[in-house]
Design a protein around this nucleic acid. Sequence first.
RNA 1: GCUGCUGUAGCUCAGAGGUAGAGCACUCCCUUGGUAAGGGAGAGGUCGAGAGUUCGAUUCUCUCCAGCAGCACCA
Length: 648
Amino acid sequence: MADISLTLPDGNQRIYAAGVTGMDVAADISKSLAKSAISCSINGKHSDLSQAITENSDFAIHTMKDDAQALELIRHDAAHIMARAVQEIWPDVRVTIGPVIENGFYYDFDRDAPFTPEDLGAIEKKMREIINKREPVTTELWDRNRAIKYYEANNEPYKVELVGMIPEGENLRMYWHGHWQDLCRGPHLVHTGQVPADAFKLQSVAGAYWRGDSKNKMLQRIYGVAFKNKLDLKAHLHMLEEAEKRDHRKLGREMDLFHIQEEAPGMVFWHPNGWTLYRILQDYMRRRQIADGYLEINTPEVVDRKLWEASGHWDKYRENMFITEIDEEHANEKRTNALKPMNCPCHVQVYNHGLKSYRDLPLRLAEFGSCHRYESSGSMHGLMRVRGFTQDDAHIFCTEGQIAAETKKFIELLTRVYRDLGFDSFEIKFSTRPDVRAGTDEVWDQAEEALEAAIKALGLPYETDPGEGAFYGPKLDFKLTDAIGREWQLGTFQADFVLPERLGAEYVGEDGMKHTPVMLHRATLGSFERFLGVLIENYAGRFPLWLAPRQIVVAAIVSDADDYVLEVVEALRARGLRAEADIRNEKINYKVREHSVGKVPVILAVGMREVEERTVSIRRLGDKGSKVESLEAIVTELANEALPPDLR
RNA sequence: GCUGCUGUAGCUCAGAGGUAGAGCACUCCCUUGGUAAGGGAGAGGUCGAGAGUUCGAUUCUCUCCAGCAGCACCA
């Protein structure tokens, strides 16, 4: 056989006979490398060490030191080992698929009785046994028919179905972990003992549809996490605990922000603290939008079905709309109304009132529009997914030629808003024309170019998602990253060539003829509810002063200071600060603890010393100590600090 | 909507076929205390809703509602 040349990551080249395996090369380099090797990359493709190399290639050996590869393999092999363990304990369980996911893996099984938490312990134990056997992982290429016959003989219908989906003529890779075998793309570790027995944990059991389709049978999914070592696992479990602590549903209760109750699932009862936060955010958005040339409007929430039929929503989304009938006692005519699931049809009604000229464009109509959507019972989640919500919605009516400038203007607004609210980074997803769409190719060309040009003009990175646009136009989605690295899709910007026409929106152009405007749907926060959920979790409830619903508590150390406490509160309130007095019969330790737990950013403690010197002792949330300043200085300092970013 | 789990005081949770308990919070009293829980007393619950089994159900069974985890969905 001819010789081939392998280029190692350090640039060195080595010559081997064609057909050499990664393991051969590792052994040739050093004995210890052969021992620690877990996989290799051949021309950048992550491969098994047993893979034969037949041509000149860039080549790298991976060990446990290569995080990306090591974690992928550990998790992937852990999934296989888990499946093997399950089948060893319950031979009648059918296997399906088990991929690697963030931090871990899962495997879907078909089994009559669901797994219980106790089962997970038994499976973990069996997995450790398999790991401790240190059995070699081997692989073979099979042709389709052999694989189908094999799986039919072994009563694995899901595997038969999977093999059936692989194109004719393509060989399949089969892997063995000891006697247990699975169809898999690979690559895998060298032996089962390379999965760290003390660094994985089975987390939970849940149902999942076969091939992700709700028409299919529901399988039993087991989720697990796996890491390189015990410490990483512990760190991950700790991180989960931390994330739980900042859960907005928990903080919402603790900080007395809102609640949701049985009689109105998916609808929020905002408490004084939460509504203060909501209002601060809304006032801020209102100022930002007005500064950007938006005109605020307000439209009905209950609207006759005729409008939804005209807009097309009745056909497409009726199942998700709250529909009301007016009973005959109260109406001469029986009619069917729907709670608005979105604002756009109503905004077109406002636009349509009165003849519009090209001189009126772009016309930016904004509404903090209260919408209702009947979300399925299983999808609701605190404030993040609700049935009643308010969008920071606006529709920009403009000409095709104005799309680019409006896109740019909007992205600039969104960037400012996100930054002001503590989110420094976000990603843009650009979705282009789908196969089934309305509008001519020329219009799509123009709109896609306009959107893309706007992102480029701002020098922002973005990702293109071909074919993912709405049927009525291309769109941009904005995903931000919060303080603990989670991503949230909130803002959106969508061009629409369909709705204005459907609802008869027109303007008189320079040519004196009637034209149909383009409508740009856009939201920055998305919905206030969801955004506040994200905001609460991002700050873990410890809001910057301008956002904090309770900004300052003035606490008396002795009751002789009560009058002065009230005076300080008055002085703070006079400057628009949200200040409360705490003159309860409690010790200062108690008060400090309670308000710290309540995440009040500033506690001003006053005793007789402060009364006499007209000072206050200021303690900031999270600080250990306090410092004394004059009342006058504190009021000015806090008043400045509490200004919203757009007013500074 | 689907699979599984859960529903007891405002919150976190314990409990049992004979009609309920703890801690914190709340109210009152004592205490005037200098930066993360001072002491005492008291009040508070149709045990998610409905039906069934039973002499008796909050406990067992069924149905429904809601929540949680995941899946599906998300204009």
